[in-house]
């Protein structure tokens, strides 16, 4: 039934035109300031796959995720995503300081495009999961950053998405919540939906994902089983050393 849905990305960000899917900053017209945050990326993620995306800072991992989420429009090539996407990129990003937990959940649900009735039904479940206690009735400006992140995580994972995009969310909150969120993410993965997981946590990537790619300077340089890709990544990094890492990290801040 619903589970049988195939989720397919088809990205051909190469060949004809040039990718301007880049963070060019304010100086759009000067050619020197342009760079390709992603380039010649061909990627397909199928139903049931969970893909780990690894790479150094500034390699284009987050841009890849944002492109998949439809936040950034590719300047070259095509992208297709079928199914409901849930993004866990920046938890609690949309919360308004002057709304309480319930209103913020409804607001976040609206941002995500979750039908109003669905999110309303899950309200108490979301608040319970986030474990924010008596702060539920207080405006969000009184929340700690951990509470915000927990609430954001609860909303984003409360409905079953077909495609789940995660950016380093395993480290949400304290140890207890990290454990809870880990279970929740595993649950979502278990329901056979496609997952794209951007992380620096190589152990987690190896454990949770059944496929991995490595991105470097906007290009996919390795793809295959997590164990192999990660082993290669480790090896290469000890060779290239931290100096090149630092240079690339300075190039872009996402």
């Amino acid at each position: 039934m619903l589970r049988g849905v195939g989720v397919q990305y088809d990205m051909r960000l190469s060949r004809k035109r040039r990718l301007r899917g880049t963070l060019t900053g304010k100086y759009k017209d000067s050619e020197a300031k342009k760079f390709w945050a992603l380039r010649k990326v061909d990627l397909e993620v199928r139903h049931g796959e969970s893909l780990a995306v690894i790479g150094n800072n500034g390699a284009g991992k987050s841009t890849l995720l944002q492109t998949l989420a439809g936040i950034i429009t590719p300047d070259e090539g095509e992208i297709e995503v079928r199914g409901r996407i849930s993004t866990l990129l920046n938890l609690g990003a949309g919360f308004e300081d002057d709304l309480d937990a319930q209103e913020n959940i409804l607001l976040a649900g609206e941002y995500l495009g979750i039908p109003h009735n669905t999110i309303r039904r899950k309200l108490s479940e979301i608040i319970n999961f986030a474990d924010i206690g008596k702060f539920a009735d207080m405006p969000a400006r009184t929340y700690s950053s951990g509470m915000r992140a927990r609430l954001g995580f609860s909303v984003a994972t409360s409905v079953d998405p077909d495609v789940l995009l995660l950016d380093e969310v395993m480290a949400t909150g304290d140890a207890a919540f990290a454990e809870k969120s880990r279970t929740r993410v595993l649950e979502l993965m278990g329901r056979a939906r496609a997952i794209v997981f951007v992380t620096h946590d190589l152990e987690a990537a190896e454990k949770f994902c059944n496929r991995a790619i490595e991105i470097d300077r906007g290009e996919i340089i390795a793809s295959g089983s997590p164990a192999k890709v990660i082993a290669d990544y480790r090896k290469r990094n000890s060779i290239t050393g931290p100096s090149s890492l630092g240079k690339r990290g300075a190039r872009i801040a996402t």
Binding site: M1, L2, L68, G70, V81, R82, R84, I85
Partner: peptide
Amino acid sequence: MRASSDRLTVGR
């Protein structure tokens, strides 16, 4: 249900 999940959501 199937129809809504099959929908093209990014890349229109």
